[in-house]
Simulated scan of single mutants.
Amino acid sequence: MEWPTAFRQLLSDLKATYSNSDDWKLTNAFGPIYRDIHHDLNAQCFSFVRDEFESYLLEEWVAPLANRNRYLSHQAVENHLWVPVQVGAKATGLTRAAVVTLCQRGLIDHREVQRGSRLLRVVHLGQLQEASSHRQSAVTLEGASKILNLSGTRVRQLLSAGLLEFFGEHKVGRSPWLIARDSLTELVSSEVRQASGSGLVTISFVAKHYLPAGGGLVELIQAIKTGALQAYRCDQDEPAALGAWLMRPTDLTSWMEERFQGSNLEFSGLSVPKAAVILGIKEEVAYACVRLGLLESISTKIGRCTQQRIAPKAIETFRRKYILGPEIATYLGMSPRDSLRHLWDIRFRPVAGPTLVSAYCRQYVWSRSKKLLDYLTWRLAHHSDAEALQACAESG
């Protein structure tokens, strides 16, 4: 009656009653019925019972089957997917250490039984074969670093946070990091707008000069994925590496101050050379600006030394309050030397520069006052109109 549903339910009830998680023997799991099916009902007319029992085992028996089982057919034993680790490793061409790592990371289903001092482990062969095919297309840590356009240290931080899927374990048998390509693709699957405006910096640059060495990149990526920060790309049609995504420094400054305030990450600000890179000036100029108080710094004890550290907010404040010679030269359409003479003649004085004894600096720095900006904007428009008229005259 109700064949084969009732028969399968009977087997499930027997297994639930007799089976022990520490015992993988069929005779103990199903009781006397196991011998009855294969010994007392061994006539050809009862083959459908044995076939259904084997079909049940293939679907529900989460344990290995002995290769020398005298009751089960050779096909049932061969098709059974739950196998010992050594068998799964041999079938897929993986090392035992790699299979164990896949189990420990929860990437494949497995069961464990402690037999005295031995730990017996079985794995699902179908899932192991699928994981093996993904592993064959995986890339090394160096390859992932090139694909993402990030340093190896930053890639390791993404691995530790679980943002990247990997195979193998560097502590087991010295097997290399192998990172799944699918996880690399998924990491850059966020919606990224096309870049607009200027003054943007890449995430690779941010990771090198803005973020703490011990972390910060994971939080940055999560902020982009949740929409707390906006990232951009140069060309909307072309896939961009994660490190090539662009961000606005002003957005980063406010986010970092909020995110790392009271954080366990040690972030005491940027060094003066790194701040110089962000500002696009030489180190000597940055140190002079710190000495003159134009670029605000904080004295921080690092190890046994005391260093001057620059907060991201101080960099944005410097950009907002001061303007340097190259930018002024662009406005005026002159060389930096001619720009100095021109502004000096119309009574605009720099706050620091090579000729100022009390405020010596290798580069001229002006206060970004409203009066100076209005004049530079007017000069830029006048210079552009003059160039347009000259081009028209030359063309005809």
Rank of each mutant, 00 (worst) to 15 (best):
G227R: 11
P176D: 02
R181M: 11
P326F: 05
Q129W: 12
A359E: 03
D374G: 10
Y331D: 05
A138I: 00
G269C: 08
D235K: 13
Q194N: 10
P350L: 04
V122Q: 00
I346C: 09
A131T: 05
L57K: 03
L159Q: 05
M1L: 12
L324F: 02
Q307V: 11
A244N: 12
Q9C: 09
A161G: 05
R70I: 08
L184S: 00
L356T: 07
K282F: 04
G106D: 11
M247C: 06
H124V: 01
G126V: 09
R118D: 15
M247Q: 00
V277H: 06
L340K: 00
G243R: 01
H38E: 06
L10T: 02
V351R: 02
T101G: 07
E54V: 04
L246V: 03
L164T: 00
H134Y: 13
K321F: 07
Y71W: 13
D237Y: 10
H124E: 07
Q157T: 02
S196Y: 12
R319I: 01
I147P: 00
S189C: 10
R368W: 01
L26Q: 06
L246A: 04
R121V: 02
R115M: 11
V122I: 15
L81W: 08
S198G: 07
S358M: 09
H39P: 01
A228M: 10
I298S: 14
I302L: 14
C305H: 14
P354Q: 08
T250K: 02
P64E: 04
Q86E: 15
G269M: 05
V201D: 04
A286Y: 01
N149D: 13
A240D: 06
F166S: 04
D40S: 11
V139I: 15
G197S: 12
R118F: 12
G353E: 00
I221L: 14
T253E: 09
G215P: 00
S133Y: 08
L148V: 04
Y34P: 04
L14S: 03
M334T: 11
R193Q: 15
P350S: 06
C289L: 12
M256N: 06
Q236F: 12
G216R: 03
P249Y: 10
S196E: 15
C289S: 13
P64C: 05
E387I: 10
Q129P: 08
E191I: 11
D385A: 15
Y210P: 04
H110S: 11
E258H: 12
I33G: 00
S384C: 09
Q104G: 09
Y34N: 06
V77D: 05
K90R: 13
V192M: 02
S175N: 10
T185R: 15
V49Y: 09
F318I: 05
S358A: 14
Y364F: 14
L65G: 02
E283M: 08
W344C: 07
V277W: 04
G214P: 03
L26E: 06
G168N: 01
L159F: 05
L211N: 02
Q136F: 07
E387D: 12
S395C: 11
Q236K: 13
Q261A: 11
A98V: 14
H342R: 11
S160L: 13
L295G: 03
I179V: 06
S369N: 07
Y18D: 00
E191V: 13
G197E: 11
S137F: 06
S190Y: 01
H80W: 00
Q44M: 09
C289K: 03
D22S: 14
N79V: 07
